[in-house]
Computed example of a mutant assay.
Amino acid sequence: MLDSPVSASTDAIASPSRETQAAIAANAVGVTLRSVTKKYGSFTAVENINLDIPAGSYCCLLGPSGCGKTTTLRMIAGHEDATSGEIVIGDRRVNDLPPAKRNTAMMFQSYALFPHKTVWQNVEFGLKMRGMPKTERAQRVEEMIEVVGLSRFSHRKPPQLSGGQQQRAALARALVTRPQVLLLDEPLSALDENLRVKTRGELRRLQKQFGMTFIQVTHGQDEAFALSDRIVVMDHGRIDQIGTPADIFRTPASKFVARFVGDNNIFMGKVVSEAIDGSSRVIGLEVDRLGKFLCHGEAANVGAEAACSVRSDRLALHPYPPADPAAPNQLTARVVAIEFTGYVTRVSLLLEATGEEVTYKVRSHDWLTHSVSEGQLVTLSWAIEDCIFLSH
């Protein structure tokens, strides 16, 4: 009779041997996409993507559902054919190679474990299909199961495991073949919040230990920020921005990225001035009924329609009326809601001039120093360097 699903805690992630780490790190390669397009009939799922992912890096493809990120991952894996363009893994063009010949491993959202096989048999499967000798196979499987903390559960089958343990088993199965690139399709989406946070830390630790190239699809910005060396933000089948987590968070390149990656307040307007201030470019944006805002950004065309964004945590809240009515980048707003969310307090305000809603966020500890209540009129302001110019 089979045991019931376990609730016992899983062992901690362990370090692989130095020999294993060295062998896998030496195998890591980069991935390059050159003008890659994928069409399904008249529908274009991915359009003219150019992307270089360095060897040994952790890259996250980030975007909403339907943006083309999973299709891109599946084309790298060979589960989808590119309509045009080149996919290069290492120094090999792989467009015409089947998945098994690309030296990648795919970790699916559903884990895709064999329910009738034990953890050991699931992890061993790929090596067995490759004809690896039994003794060497056993050594590899034993080490990898230990690395992911499942040694005590190697005899159990997937239905007897928790979701987190199934995720570890799938990871061990992917890593044991020592692929050049590990592809992960939203591997944490089925886990609860606490386990998801814990598991993403373990994923990052393993990637650093192995020095392997990881490419992961996610729609969660927190996940992408926590895991990746670089983030590729996608929208409607195109790449909108590529950068480090800090780059994407601090300096979004477009209105879409600014909206997607967090609580940015976005103002639409027209470029009316451009000047160099030391090493920075200061752009003047005239916003209807709100006046002229000064922001930092790249080159702008005077007269062009554009926008700027200010993160909700970079706003400052002051009593009304303002001490200096002529100071740049300040607005009058009325507090309509105050929400305590734990570490952070979120304040919703309506601009007096337009009725538009803006968001102010502050650490809950610091909020205690404010004597502000709902319905109160306040002044909002922000520094020029915290106002990011968005050309599109």
Score class of each variant (00 low, 15 high):
residue 374 E to Q: 07
residue 5 P to G: 06
residue 257 V to H: 06
residue 78 G to V: 03
residue 188 L to C: 14
residue 377 L to T: 10
residue 176 V to G: 14
residue 268 M to A: 14
residue 380 L to F: 00
residue 244 T to R: 06
residue 214 F to V: 06
residue 317 L to C: 11
residue 186 E to C: 13
residue 80 E to P: 08
residue 300 A to N: 11
residue 315 L to C: 04
residue 339 E to W: 06
residue 356 E to D: 15
residue 64 P to Q: 02
residue 207 Q to A: 14
residue 226 A to I: 00
residue 371 S to P: 00
residue 174 A to W: 01
residue 389 F to Y: 12
residue 71 T to P: 15
residue 113 L to Y: 10
residue 172 A to Q: 03
residue 343 Y to G: 11
residue 321 P to V: 03
residue 176 V to I: 03
residue 81 D to H: 12
residue 371 S to E: 13
residue 341 T to L: 12
residue 305 E to Q: 14
residue 141 V to T: 05
residue 158 P to N: 09
residue 92 R to L: 14
residue 364 S to N: 13
residue 349 L to I: 00
residue 315 L to D: 04
residue 381 S to H: 05
residue 242 I to K: 07
residue 174 A to N: 03
residue 336 V to I: 14
residue 84 S to G: 08
residue 45 A to P: 05
residue 151 S to T: 08
residue 271 V to I: 15
residue 277 D to C: 05
residue 346 R to K: 13
residue 134 K to F: 06
residue 273 S to Y: 08
residue 9 S to W: 00
residue 175 L to E: 03
residue 369 T to C: 08
residue 261 V to H: 14
residue 94 V to F: 13
residue 190 A to R: 05
residue 189 S to A: 15
residue 250 R to A: 12
residue 292 K to E: 09
residue 184 L to Y: 08
residue 367 W to K: 10
residue 208 K to N: 13
residue 154 S to C: 06
residue 377 L to I: 05
residue 352 E to A: 10
residue 88 V to K: 13
residue 114 F to W: 13
residue 337 A to R: 12
residue 58 Y to N: 02
residue 81 D to Q: 14
residue 359 T to Q: 07
residue 54 P to C: 07
residue 10 T to H: 08
residue 268 M to H: 08
residue 235 D to N: 15
residue 269 G to C: 07
residue 59 C to M: 14
residue 19 E to M: 01
residue 50 N to W: 03
residue 132 M to E: 05
residue 320 Y to I: 01
residue 50 N to S: 12
residue 182 L to H: 07
residue 252 P to M: 06
residue 340 F to N: 09
residue 297 G to K: 01
residue 104 T to P: 11
residue 386 D to M: 04
residue 366 D to M: 09
residue 237 G to K: 01
residue 361 K to Q: 13
residue 184 L to K: 07
residue 379 T to L: 01
residue 1 M to S: 14
residue 143 E to L: 03
residue 236 H to F: 00
residue 384 I to V: 15
